[in-house]
Amino acid sequence: MNALLDRIARLGRIVIAVLHSVGEVTLFGMAGVSHIFRPPFYGRAFGTAMMNIGFFSLPVVALTAVFTGMVLALQSFTGFSRFSAEGAIANVVVLSVTRELGPVLAGLIVAGRVGAAMAAEIGTMRVTDQIDALSTLSTDPMKYLVAPRLLAGTLSLPLLVVVADILGVMGGYLIAALKLGFNSTTYIARTLDFVQLDDVLSGLAKAAVFGFLIALMGCYQGYNSRGGAQGVGNATTSAVVAASILILAFDYVLTEMFFAR
């Protein structure tokens, strides 16, 4: 009887701890968002964040997109030729890239690249008292550090995904036209014919959410890191893991919202 109660108590504590963290992250996110809309605005910090998240992630996102498109074309060819449905490759590529793979892969890669860097930077500022120093210099750290990053994350990931979409489709086209012997005019025509604004926009909306989540986890983990270099290391890992899991979970939720009718 006692053992059972113990176990229930332990389970309860875990549930409470999880809810507690979710609540804390939510409050942190809401505070950060509210600072986006209230002056003073830090344009310089926002610009730097846009460069770091958007511009410097371009090469790696671009490479991922091209190869993903190529693999997609190759895989669907081997699969579809069994049903003599090779003609659908163009449709499959454009649909998967714009709806799913563009935003999710770009999100995961940016989470690893930028989420980690954000957590490390803000975490170092925390453990070396730089965040405290900001508040003694008439600067709200939530406004100066967190708000610009949240905004930049939300805006720059969709831009990256536009690039990823184009390059992903192009990767598929390269394989189809050069290796699988498709007529390139027909392939392009089919792609353009099939691509829908809704699909692209839903992908971009997902990307905006993912970008926000990446920045949120990076900032939250960094802001709350404790205990020197090791604490910053832990914060970095947590930021990437949490952002990746959230991206996949929200991907499901958003897909339900957009397409389950």
Binding site: T124, T128, D129, A133, L134
Partner: peptide
């Protein structure tokens, strides 16, 4: 601050 806490 004890360790300076300069913004690096």
């Amino acid at each position: 601050f004890q360790n300076g806490a300069l913004f690096d």
